[in-house]
Structures are given as structure tokens and as C-alpha cells.
């Protein structure tokens, strides 16, 4: 396709600008890029969370497109209302987009998200996943990975951080037989941009799960957000994939994984992990990839 949005052709206009997000914030980059792709006819719904906390402080309002904060649990249900309301008052050619964090999506908001997908409402839901409740100061969410230290899963002699694996939200969403779902990462912006553009043109509910590291919560320097997101893909703890027409497709099929230990130990939240802990994560990773190679369409070229 010739008219695809790329790094070269993406608009200079900013729709999320002048906000108070921390230096190196991955979530704000995901929101900024998403709105640049969707443009001025996007109507965004953001729940209580980091992005609404840094962007909606009256009279300092940072979205130049129509935007509204929803209740924490109500991103998807408010999106449904916004989409139906816009149609009801005769607005055409718009996109209702939800921009919610991992806790707002996988925990408190999952019921509303499931309802919206079930109705196949014409909305795009983007979950920016920084793997914990960062706005309240780094507490465990359903998307916090095994081993991660948070303020509610401290690491000590007996317990080495979070005991449970990351909830597989991409496949939970796909199990609704959704029109389109994808995983993405701010470590691969061209892929993220493509997927937003693709989702925005599909009628019905679409979902993008984008990993967006939080330097404060992950314990990394603020200039390494993109690098750590890339490492997460390279070591196999994240994957870029799509679900469409009942099929899963892997977009990037790495020949070898980079060191999982290097990925983990370069972050403060995993510093306490011993070799046995790392082995647990490696085994989980390998089992997941074995299932992916067996069941998913993996013929796509490497990105």
C-alpha cells in the first residue's frame, strides 16, 4: 500500500501535548502516536489513571481532539455511549478510541471491555501496558509479570516479588471472536502505527495491546524506555501478533532469543531474581512459543 502512515508521513500535528507525564514515559508516547495516526476526528476516552492525571488538569487541558475521562472501570462502556451518541446526533466519519492502562483494562475494566466486544461496538480500544498500577505508585495489576517487585508484591527472603504470571489479555480478547486484535510495543513504532491504522479502518470492535514501559516502575534510566521495550521482544517475553478472522498471526518470528537474564536484570523490579526464578520465566516463555509455533500462522516475514 502506498498511502500508509510511516515515520516520514505521520502528521506534525500534536493531539496530546503539554502534559505532565514523567520523563521517558512509555504510555504517553503510545497515546501521542495513537492520536497522531487517528487524527482530529478521534474522540478519546481515558479512564482515571496516568494519562488522565497528567493531561486533564483544569484549566490545563492537553488534548486538542475531543477527549473525556471515564470512571476507572468504565472506559469501554463510556466508549460505547460516545460512539452511539455521536451517531445519534448525526456525526459521521469519526473514531471512538479508548486509551487505558493495564489495571484499567485487565482488572477493573475487563467486564466493560468484554461487554463492548460482545456487542461488537464500533470502537478501538488501546491498552497501554506498563505492567502495574503506576499512577498510584507501582502496585501489582493482573498484567504484572511473574517475579516483578511492586509496592504490593515486595521481594524478600521468602517471596521474590509477584507470584503469578501475566494474564494473557490478548488471547482473552481474541476468544470473544473480536473483529481485530493485535499486540504491539513502543519498541516497534512502525508496527504499532500500522496496527492502529489498520484497526481504525475496521468496522466493529478492535483492540490493540501495546507494551509501554514505565521507567519509574520498571527501575530503568529514563532514556532506556524504547531500548527495554525492544529487549522484551527480542528475548521472547513479548511478541508482535494479530488476531483476525479467527486466526492468530505472528508478525515477527525471531530465529533466536536474546538473553532473558540480561532483559530482566537490567531492570530494578527484577534485580532480586535468582537463577531459579529466571528459569521459571524461561520455561514459561518456551512453552508459550512452542504453542505459538504450533497453532499460529507464523509465515509472515520478519519485520
Amino acid at each position: 500500500m502506498t498511502n500508509k502512515i510511516t515515520a516520514k508521513t505521520i502528521t506534525d500535528s500534536e493531539f496530546f501535548y503539554g502534559h505532565k507525564a514523567c520523563a521517558g514515559c512509555g504510555g504517553s508516547l503510545a497515546v501521542r502516536i495513537a492520536l497522531k495516526v487517528l487524527g482530529e476526528r478521534a474522540i478519546s476516552v481515558l479512564p482515571a489513571g496516568c494519562m488522565s492525571a497528567v493531561g486533564f488538569n483544569y484549566p490545563h487541558l492537553c488534548f486538542s481532539n475531543n477527549s473525556i475521562i471515564s470512571t476507572f472501570a468504565g472506559t469501554a462502556s463510556m466508549l460505547t455511549g460516545v460512539e452511539a451518541g455521536a451517531r445519534a446526533v448525526g456525526i459521521k466519519n469519526f473514531k471512538a478510541v479508548g486509551l487505558a492502562g493495564d489495571g484499567g483494562t485487565a482488572d477493573i475494566g475487563i467486564q466493560a471491555l468484554s461487554g463492548a466486544i460482545d456487542r461488537n461496538d464500533d470502537i478501538l480500544y488501546i491498552c497501554y501496558d506498563n505492567e502495574a498500577y503506576m499512577n498510584t505508585g507501582i502496585q501489582k495489576s493482573g498484567l504484572t509479570p511473574f517475579g516483578a517487585k511492586t509496592t504490593t508484591t515486595p521481594s524478600g527472603e521468602n517471596i521474590h516479588g509477584n507470584l503469578r504470571p501475566k494474564k494473557n489479555l490478548f488471547e482473552i480478547v481474541a476468544a470473544h471472536n473480536i473483529s481485530y486484535a493485535a499486540t504491539a510495543s513502543i519498541g516497534n513504532l512502525p508496527d504499532f502505527i500500522n496496527k492502529i491504522e489498520k484497526a481504525s479502518k475496521i468496522k466493529g470492535t478492535t483492540y490493540i495491546h501495546v507494551v509501554a514501559p514505565c521507567p519509574i516502575g520498571w527501575g530503568i534510566p529514563v532514556n532506556e524506555t524504547i531500548e527495554i521495550a525492544r529487549k522484551m521482544i527480542d528475548c521472547g517475553l513479548w511478541y508482535l501478533a494479530e488476531y483476525e478472522n479467527g486466526q492468530f498471526t505472528l508478525n515477527k518470528n525471531p530465529r533466536d532469543f536474546s538473553s532473558i537474564k540480561d532483559y530482566l536484570l537490567s531492570q530494578g523490579r527484577f534485580k532480586h531474581l535468582d537463577d531459579a526464578d529466571i528459569e521459571i520465566l524461561a520455561v514459561q516463555r518456551d512453552a508459550k512459543w512452542a504453542a505459538i509455533q504450533k497453532n499460529w500462522n507464523t509465515t509472515k516475514e520478519e519485520l
Partner: peptide, 12 residues
């Protein structure tokens, strides 16, 4: 969700 949805529609 019933009321959250109504709020979204009213906001349009």
C-alpha cells in the same frame, strides 16, 4: 456500564 454509557452518549 448502563450509566457510564449514558454519560458517554450525553457527552456527545
Amino acid at each position: 456500564s448502563a450509566l457510564s454509557c449514558a454519560i458517554g452518549a450525553s457527552a456527545m
